[in-house]
Structure formats: C-alpha cells, structure tokens
C-alpha cells in the first residue's frame, strides 16, 4: 500500500513533536490508543485562559506513518483555534487532507479522539480550579 505524498511529508517532517508540561494548568493532555494495532498517541494543547485559543500544541505518537501524520496534522490544525473550533475537527477532514486509505481510517479517528481527550483534560483542570 502506498502512502500519499502528504502522509510521507508529515512522517518525514512531523510538525510539533514533543511535550508540554503535564502539570502546567494551561496545558491539556490527551492520551489515546488503538487496540486494533497497538498504536498510542499523546496530544497536548496549551490554551489561553482568557480567549480559550489554543496557542501551542505538541504530539508524540508511537505507531504507523498514517498515525504519525494524522496527529502531526491535528496539532497544525488546532493551533490558533478556539476550543470550540478545535472540537469541530472531524476525522473525515483528516482522511480527506491526507488521502488515507480505508484501512488507515482508524488512525484519523485516533487523532480526533486525542484532540477531544486533550480538551476534556484541560476543561477538567479548569473546573477544579474554579471550585
């Protein structure tokens, strides 16, 4: 199976690889996995508390090229977006952008789940702080 040029580009030059401090209250961390293939993906967002804009995003994925490309693209897309906008990113958008074949669709699902998990984590931190 051949990877699309965009997948290869993200795989060879992944954007935003790395980590943000999990303890930082402005950082939300999403950790998700796909039991079908054993891939694990960590996606982190740094959110401006006033504007709710995602100012930075980092990821680290252990998995196939499509999983790495999906999460790399996800970090690119969420940066500069508000939490509400980021929540509207669908896995099908990632599939389209990267031309993922049907057997790799679960990689895009994983990336969408990771964005949602990171946002949930951030919101949880803020609910607690508000109390």
């Amino acid at each position: 199976m051949a990877y699309s040029d965009k997948v290869i580009d993200h795989y060879n030059n992944p954007r935003n690889v790395g980590a943000l401090s999990k303890e930082d209250p402005t950082v939300g961390t999403g950790l998700v996995g796909a039991p079908e293939c054993g891939d694990v993906m960590k996606l982190q967002i740094k959110v401006n508390e006033q504007t709710q804009v995602i100012e930075d995003a980092k990821f680290k994925t252990f998995g196939c090229g499509s999983a790495i490309a999906s999460s790399s693209l996800a970090t690119e897309w969420v940066k500069g977006k508000t939490l509400a906008e980021a929540l509207s990113i669908k896995n099908t958008d990632i599939v389209k952008e990267l031309s993922l074949p049907p057997v790799k669709i679960h990689c895009s699902v994983l990336a969408e789940d990771a964005i949602k998990a990171a946002i949930t984590d951030w919101k949880k931190k803020h609910d607690d702080n508000g109390k």
């Binding site: 950790l31 998700v32 996995g33 039991p35 694990v40 994983l110 789940d113």
Partner: peptide, 23 residues
C-alpha cells in the same frame, strides 16, 4: 470488536513510557 475506550488509562500511560524507552 476491540474497543480502545475500555483500556485503562494507567495501561496506556505505561505503554507510552515503555515506547519512549524503546525509542
């Protein structure tokens, strides 16, 4: 069907850390 959402978070974290060491 295998369901990722049922896998405990602690296991995922552990797997992630082992992956980092493996790297």
């Amino acid at each position: 069907k295998p369901d990722g959402s049922k896998v405990p978070k602690s296991l995922l974290m552990e797997v992630f850390e082992i992956n980092e060491k493996l790297e």
